[in-house]
Amino acid sequence: MTDRVLIDEGSVPKLPNHVKLRFNEQRKQWVVLAPERLLVPDETSVEILQNCDGEVSVSGMIDVLAEKYNAPRDIIGKDVIELLQGLADKGFIVT
């Protein structure tokens, strides 16, 4: 067992193997699936979750989003880390 997953800019997050990000064709909807859980992430969350592949670092994600939305890096950064930490505490994200 490891300690609680703490997300910071250096983290390289990924979905644990029982959690799947899938596009449901019938519903035209992204969903995060775990045995007893189901999450319908909003557009931004989907973008972030798609990058949780165990290769991209949090700081990398922030750079891309800050550029894409032309928004201040510190504000985007705070949001991204908060979102990932929330997902990590629920077991949807590991590092």
């Binding site: 067992m1 300690d3 609680r4 703490l6 007893e36 505490d89 077991g91």
Partner: peptide, 9 residues
């Protein structure tokens, strides 16, 4: 104690 390591429902 196990937050982030074991999810307990």
């Amino acid at each position: 104690r196990l937050k982030g390591t074991l999810v307990i429902d």
